[in-house]
Amino acid sequence: MKSNRLFEIIYILLDKKRVTAKELAEHFEVSRRTICRDIEILSSSGIPIYTDKGRNGGIGILDNFTFDKSILSEQEQKEILASLEGLNMLKYPDMNSTLAKLRALFCKSDLNWITVDFSHWCSNNVEKDKFIKIKSAILDCNIITFEYISTYGKITKRCVEPLMLWFKEKSWYIKAYCRQKNDYRIFKVVRMKNICICEQTFIRSIPIEVGEIKEDKNKNIILKLKISKDIAYRVYDEFDIDNILYDNDGNFIVNVQYPQNDWIYGYVLSFGNHIEVLEPIDVRDKILQIVDDIKIKYL
């Protein structure tokens, strides 16, 4: 407890530059005599602390002092603060306090190099609360229950051990061990509803031999797409540059691999008349059938 108080005194002095013994005593709920003894210990340990007497006096620390400067290089200090700033944006517990202390120790100002918003456009606070619950459950190893909407619209009740929050291809997922399936699964966060954190905890991590967990057991399918040059922004935003070729008119020929499910058809149709499925034929025929069904609704 005493060593923690000594370190925190250094943090406070680096942050506020000057404080009184009375302020420190009230902060730590100890006597002024105890604070004076602490200051003597720090001074004898080589920490450049000084005291000024009088009306405007107090306890201070030399402006050019940085704590354990020899242990960490300038670049290492920046990397540590940048990493912690990222955790702070993810609402990691007590990170504000940790950042404030380390900034003071390293004599660095706020970085503010990153911001993360887990919610999608037009969503409300309910969507943000999902991530708070998921984060809490992962850190504390609590089982969670939720309702999950599958690719086909089927709603099931799930009880899982959440292991990792995962961002892939513009969507957030959690990697988890599903107690219904007795296997590892991933779940798309946007399809998770009514998340509840259980008191029951678990002890499990993702085994290395499991590899990349798949959302479902469906096989992948390779699509060959022709996309109009008029929507180049979508092509460069959504496809790997190595998968993009060009025809004689400057349009795009894209080869891409996706899980074989109904999501493919909605995705292709989102390009409107700017896209044509060249291969495989069965996907091309399915798109034609969907278009015909749509036309009937508007006749």
Rank of each mutant, 00 (worst) to 15 (best):
E23Y: 01
K157T: 08
N4R: 10
F271W: 14
Y265A: 02
D94W: 05
I61N: 06
F239V: 05
I186P: 01
S73R: 04
W263V: 03
I287V: 15
L278A: 02
Q257G: 00
V283W: 00
C196K: 15
N142A: 08
K170H: 10
L139R: 13
F239P: 05
D240H: 09
E147K: 14
G266Y: 01
L223Q: 03
K101V: 12
T156A: 11
F239A: 06
L24I: 07
L14G: 10
I221R: 07
K16L: 10
E209W: 07
I10T: 08
I134K: 08
Y184M: 03
N243S: 13
D140I: 01
D293G: 13
I47N: 04
E79K: 14
T51Q: 14
S171G: 02
N88T: 02
L245T: 11
M192E: 08
K219P: 13
C122G: 05
L72F: 15
S45E: 12
R284E: 03
N261Y: 08
W166H: 12
P207D: 06
D110G: 00
N4F: 05
R37I: 08
N218A: 13
Y265S: 00
N255M: 02
K214N: 13
V30D: 02
A104H: 07
I231Y: 01
I174G: 03
K91R: 15
S45F: 04
K157D: 11
Y258W: 12
A137Q: 08
K286D: 00
T98E: 04
K2L: 11
I61P: 04
D237C: 06
K91H: 14
V283N: 01
I281G: 00
E8R: 08
K295A: 14
I10Q: 03
D216K: 10
S70V: 01
L62S: 15
Y11Q: 06
I203A: 11
R191M: 11
F252Q: 05
I206T: 02
I143S: 07
Y177V: 05
E26R: 10
S44G: 00
L105I: 11
R191W: 04
D63A: 15
F187I: 11
T145F: 07
I244Y: 06
Q260H: 09
K133S: 12
K135N: 15
D15Q: 09
K224W: 02
Y11C: 10
T145D: 15
D68R: 14
D52Q: 14
D183E: 12
D247F: 04
F67I: 13
L163A: 05
L299K: 15
G60M: 13
V291I: 15
V277A: 04
K69H: 08
E169S: 08
L84Q: 06
R179N: 13
K78V: 11
G266D: 02
C141P: 01
I49F: 10
D262L: 03
C122E: 12
E29W: 00
I10S: 04
I132N: 10
I174S: 06
Y184V: 05
K181M: 07
I49D: 07
V160L: 10
K78M: 15
D230Y: 14
L269Q: 08
G57W: 05
K217Y: 11
N182A: 09
I208Q: 13
V256N: 00
I296K: 13
P162W: 09
S83K: 11
N273P: 01
L278T: 01
I9F: 03
Y267D: 03
E215W: 01
E147G: 10
A21V: 08
Y184A: 02
K2R: 15
